[in-house]
Amino acid sequence: MSAAMDYEQAGELKIGQVGIANLRIRNLDVSRLVEEMRQRVQRAPKLFARAAVVIDFGGLSQVPDEATARSLLDGLRDAGVLPVALAYGTTATERLSEALGLPLLAKFRAQYERADGGNPAPEPVAAPEPARPAASRPAAATSAPAAPAPDPGLIQAAPVRSGQQVYADNRDLTVLTSVGAGAEVIADGSVHIYGPLRGRALAGAQGNEKARIFCREFHAELVAVAGHYRVLEDIPPDLRGKAVQVWLEDQQLKIAALD
């Protein structure tokens, strides 16, 4: 009799939401980029030391050559972070990622395909229906269809504890209790926290600059809206422990106490 097959996997692979920083390169000055990153790590080591970083060359007119890219990666590692991937871009980006032995992060795919290929094709417009005599027209509907119920967003009733992450995909996030130190709450829309915020809160994760963060008791390690962030060391001491709102205005992150 043949031995029974063992179908149990040695490793279980799951795909999930992961908090990874995106470094969008706007000026390919390697020494300046490395120094800026070194300062970030020194100012907030708990947040940035050995942080996973995706390198995004979409802000440049052309992708750098392999030697320059390797110099940047080495410099960033020396500054204290860990480059783990390139943001999806053009075919040149894909070739560079293969040469560097780094994966492409697909979440940026749609954004770059629009940028590289021009504006998305417009939706087809239906031709107007020719006019018909009144007698042959269908009778008007007697009642309009019921409107769909509004989406309340994702509601997190339990505390978000250290090491946990809660992500609201394409909606708002409401946390009814607390967000502990080392925890992270992320929403593509706005974030509402009805207890203390001691971890990180990120609103507008997919670039929604109108998203906001509202918090009843502010002790955040980091807050961000549409990628613009501030860490605890940058926050005025008189706002700590207060009820605040965080929003983006003229590409600057604003934090103010709620009256």
Rank of each mutant, 00 (worst) to 15 (best):
S2Q: 12
A3R: 10
G11Y: 11
K14H: 13
I15T: 12
G16F: 01
V18P: 00
I20E: 03
A21W: 15
R26Y: 05
N27V: 13
S31Q: 14
M37R: 13
Q39I: 11
Q42K: 14
P45I: 14
K46C: 01
R50W: 06
A51L: 11
V54C: 08
D56Y: 05
L60K: 03
Q62P: 00
Q62T: 14
P64H: 07
T68R: 13
A69I: 11
A69K: 12
L72S: 02
L72E: 01
L76E: 08
D78K: 15
G80P: 01
Y88R: 10
Y88C: 08
T93Q: 10
L96R: 04
S97M: 09
A99N: 12
P103Y: 04
A106S: 13
Q111F: 09
E123S: 15
E129F: 14
R137K: 11
P148E: 04
P148N: 04
P152M: 08
A157T: 13
A158N: 10
V160G: 03
R161S: 11
G163P: 00
G163Y: 06
G163N: 04
Q165M: 14
N170S: 12
V175E: 00
T177W: 00
G180P: 00
I186N: 01
V191E: 00
H192Y: 11
I193V: 09
L202W: 06
Q206V: 08
K210T: 13
I213T: 01
I213Q: 00
H219I: 10
V223Q: 04
A224C: 08
G227L: 06
H228F: 13
Y229T: 06
I235V: 15
V244Q: 05
L248T: 08
Q251S: 11
Q252W: 01
K254I: 13
A257L: 07
A257I: 06
